[in-house]
Design a protein around this nucleic acid. Structure first.
Length: 494
RNA sequence: GGCGCGGUACCCAAGUGGUAAGGGAGAGGUCUGCAAAACCUUUAUGCGUCGGUUCGAUUCCGACCCGCGCCUCCA
């Protein structure tokens, strides 16, 4: 079975096939680095990451390019009010973005920056002017003439045919031929950051960078272009218009858009007080793995309701999967294999892959792995797992984690970094007791813990349960959970 | 107003023209010195409302109610 993906262009689920065998070329619209990324941003980026990972698991080499928008009106304004250069300003937030992305398991794509492609953008604009698709206004700005691109609106399913002539013209935009024409190049206003180029001084319009950089890295026609649903119009529509006008060829073949999320049932907004950056959530004590799990638990085209209750539920779910893996890796099994477990592992992988093939149905993929965990756990309890059953079961789990990336327990060091950052930013007051408690377990070294466990073992051998329980309580206090199993004492950091 | 998406148990949420995945939470139980983990049982004759099509609809059609998105460089 092959991957079937919803294509915004056709509004249908289509079978995905890259243009070149075995290689997927994809471009994702990245962040405008003017602030810390919020959960909404990361829902989209995580969805794209999942897609990229699944492409790779499906056997494709993936060339994944993402832009960093490091110049726009907001950046220029904020940098000016902070009294720093645009470069200084964006460097800080780009770094923060990349740290955050890594924190929730996003594999780093090839990064391209708008400010590093100014000359190419100027060339792009001048070619559009030559071909008659763009024009220069009196102030030195350049606009794309959408009347020259009859297919304008094909992605967002908008009909502009009736609005092109005689459309109302905003007073501010008197120099555009049509109100719908969009800026390719903006002439500088006094004091604004600007670049000197053959087409005159100024800075790129927002859409230009994506066309220029995607085609430069991936070719004039590539396989897939991704972003948040808000980008369908005008951003991606404009990219198509300017790119296809220039090349005369189809731009991206698949358009992948992630739906916005709700926070506590409402649209996220600063005024509602439900606006959270990734760092805010970690400061409240939530694990990066919980956040990633919650973000992936609802298929990318559905509206996800991101709640704190959901975050807690996600943490427990991840815990369950991690426990299962621990159980398998640490257990003692008798030699041999069972047809039941062999079949279970195989079927689970099939179900999981089948679900992801179906337009990335992550909810069903998760259901498949949990079904396996339940059945295997039940078998475990009755000795129904043999030595040779363990590798296929673990491998199914690994296959799951190649996509979802939540099983490795590296939450504590990641959270520590956020705590350090908060301290360095003078935001100690935002560090919750929950976060401090979650980091407790990082205080003791493995050796310290092992020593305590050995003491516990000795006490238990002497049937001194009181002493043993005291040690267990002490460790629990330090964030270490001790479990006594038939295979010995096991511990883990909470 | 134009275009589009959705309303499934206490919460999150998948899904199908033939009688409701999975996770969390709750309750009861098994195991255990006690915990933890795990397992078992249990929690929607019901899938926004009202009609229609059909042998049969949660799934198709229509109307209505509610929520959400894009149409203003917000992922």
């Amino acid at each position: 079975m092959a991957l079937r993906l919803f294509n915004t262009m056709s509004s249908q689920i289509e079978e995905f096939r890259p243009l070149r065998d075995q290689e997927v070329r994809m471009y994702a619209c990245g962040p405008t680095v003017y602030d810390y990324g919020h959960v909404g941003n990361f829902r989209t980026f995580v969805a794209v990451d999942l897609l990229r990972r699944f492409f790779r698991q499906s056997g494709y080499a993936v060339r994944h390019v993402m832009n960093i928008t490091d110049v726009d009106d907001k950046i220029i304004r904020n940098a000016a009010s902070d009294g720093v250069s645009v470069q200084q300003y964006t460097a800080k937030y780009e770094k923060a973005f990349l740290e955050d992305a890594a924190m929730i398991g996003i594999e780093e794509p090839m990064l391209v920056r708008a400010t590093e492609h100014i000359p190419e953008m100027a060339v792009f604009v001048s070619k559009l002017v030559e071909k008659g698709f763009a024009y220069r206004s009196d102030d030195g700005s350049y606009y794309f003439r959408i009347a020259k691109f009859p297919q304008y609106g094909k992605l967002s399913k908008k009909d502009f045919s009736g609005m092109l002539d005689g459309a109302r013209v905003d007073v501010d935009e008197y120099d555009k031929d049509s109100a719908r024409d969009f800026a390719l190049w903006k002439a500088p206003k006094p004091g604004e950051a600007s670049w000197d180029t053959p087409i005159g001084p100024g800075r790129p319009g927002w859409h230009l960078e994506c066309s220029v950089m995607s085609m430069e890295e991936l070719g004039e026609t590539f396989d897939l272009h991704a972003g948040g649903e808000d980008l369908v119009f005008p951003h991606h529509e404009n990219e198509i218009a300017q790119s296809e006008s220039l090349t005369g060829k189809p731009f991206a073949r698949f358009w992948f858009h992630a739906r916005f999320l709700l926070v506590e049932g409402e649209k996220m907004s600063k005024s509602l007080g439900n606006f959270f950056t990734l760092r805010d959530l970690v400061l409240k004590g939530h694990k990066p793995s919980s956040i990633r799990y919650l973000l992936t638990s609802v298929p990318y085209r559905s509206q996800l309701n991101f709640t704190f209750d959901g975050l807690k539920q996600a943490a427990v779910s991840v815990e369950r999967l991690r426990n299962f893996r621990l159980r398998l890796s640490a257990g003692n099994f008798s030699p041999g294999a069972t047809s039941q477990m062999q079949a279970l592992a195989e079927q689970s992988v099939e179900r999981m892959t089948g679900a992801l093939d179906d337009d990335l149905n992550t909810a069903q993929a998760q259901a498949a792995i949990f079904e396996m965990v339940r059945q295997a756990n039940a078998a475990f309890d009755t000795g129904g797992i043999k030595q040779d059953d363990v590798p296929p079961l673990l491998s199914a789990l690994t296959k799951f984690d190649e996509i979802f990336a939540v099983l490795d327990d590296d939450d504590v060091p990641k959270m520590e970094r956020v705590l350090d950052w908060a301290v360095s930013e003078g935001r100690e007051k935002d560090i919750s007791d929950e976060l401090r408690a979650a980091l407790q377990s990082g205080q003791l070294s493995d050796a310290d813990i092992e020593k305590k466990i050995a003491e516990m073992q000795a006490a238990r051998a002497a049937r001194d349960f009181k002493a043993s329980d005291a040690i267990r309580a002490e460790l629990a206090e330090a964030g270490i959970l001790v479990e006594i199993t038939k295979d010995g004492i096991r511990w883990r950091r909470k």
